[in-house]
Computed example of a mutant assay.
Amino acid sequence: MSRALVIGASGGIGAAISSELEGRDYEVTRLSRRENGLDVTDPASVESHLGNLDGPFDLIVISTGILAPEGAGPEKALGQIEPDTMARTFAVNAVGPALVLAHAERLLPREGRSAVGVLSARVGSIGDNRIGGWYSYRASKAALNQILRGAAIEIGRKRKEAAVVALHPGTVETPFTADYPGHSKVSAEEAAANLVTVLEGLTPKATGRFYAYDGQEIPW
């Protein structure tokens, strides 16, 4: 039986990915702040929770993230940027996954196909940005993408068959997106099925790239 590790497994998309993997006969280890007290922005918490895990895991999914801190929202103009809000958004969306990725190599098999998928967002693509706005969220996801790219190179030096990728799930119906009714949304279950299908179809040549839920590559 294949083994999977899902970080952020109590959130809408993380829970759906966990259930989808279990439906495909994976043995799933779930970690989250709500259920386990994992704080991805706290190095000691990450070390405590991930340092005690025994691999290997054939698949690792990092599904943590925020659109904005509680009580705040995405900025529509440069003048709306608040340093503390931006710093918190970066801490959760970029620094947190980086701390988790530091454990990924140890937790992946030394030989054989494996995959790491980190939930990013299309709005983090610099090449795809045509309308501006959402500065903290966009920039934090762009930073995450760069971290992912570097992690793919580092992990690939010893795990030649690993594919480490950024993933865009689409706009998913979760509390995360409830305040944005103008966007076309899919259910968390549908998004999870799409993402797992993409992850299962990856080859080592895909490592260090950015993919949408339909398998199409997104420009950095």
Results as ranks from 00 to 15, higher is better:
Asn129Gly: 05
Ala94Gly: 06
Leu119Phe: 04
Arg149Ser: 05
Tyr137Phe: 15
Ser187Gly: 14
Phe57Glu: 10
Val118Leu: 01
Asn129Tyr: 05
Gly170Cys: 08
Tyr213Pro: 02
Ala192Pro: 01
Leu148Val: 15
Asn145Tyr: 12
Ala102His: 14
Asp128Gln: 07
Leu199Glu: 06
Tyr26Ala: 06
His168Asn: 07
Ile155Trp: 10
Glu111Arg: 14
Ala178Asp: 14
Ser48His: 15
Ser120Trp: 00
Gly208Ala: 05
Leu53Asn: 07
Glu105Tyr: 03
Ile60Asp: 08
Glu105Phe: 05
Thr197His: 14
Ile60Pro: 10
Arg138Ala: 08
Arg113Met: 02
Leu38His: 01
Asp39Lys: 02
Gly96Val: 00
Phe57Leu: 10
Phe57Cys: 11
Ala121Asn: 00
Met86Ile: 12
Gly79Arg: 12
Ser63Leu: 02
Lys158Asp: 14
Pro69Val: 08
Val40Thr: 15
Val123Pro: 01
Pro74Ser: 07
Leu59Cys: 13
Pro56Gly: 11
Ala166Cys: 11
Arg110Leu: 13
Leu119Thr: 01
Pro169Asp: 03
Gly71Ser: 08
Ala72Cys: 06
Arg130Glu: 11
Ala9Gly: 02
Asp54Lys: 15
Ala192Cys: 04
Arg130Ser: 12
Pro175Gly: 09
Arg122Asn: 06
Asn145Ala: 10
Gly65Pro: 06
Ala191Gln: 01
Asp58Cys: 03
Leu199Ser: 08
Ala166Lys: 10
Ser2Lys: 15
Gly133Thr: 10
Ile147Tyr: 07
Ala68Met: 06
Ser45Asn: 10
Phe210Asp: 06
Arg110Ala: 13
Gly208Glu: 04
Gly156Val: 07
Gly79His: 11
Leu144Cys: 09
Gly117Met: 00
Asn93Cys: 05
Thr203Asp: 15
Arg3Asn: 10
Ala15Ser: 14
Leu199Met: 15
Glu173Asp: 15
Ile131Cys: 03
Gly37Asn: 03
Ile155Tyr: 09
Tyr137His: 12
Glu161Ile: 10
His168Lys: 03
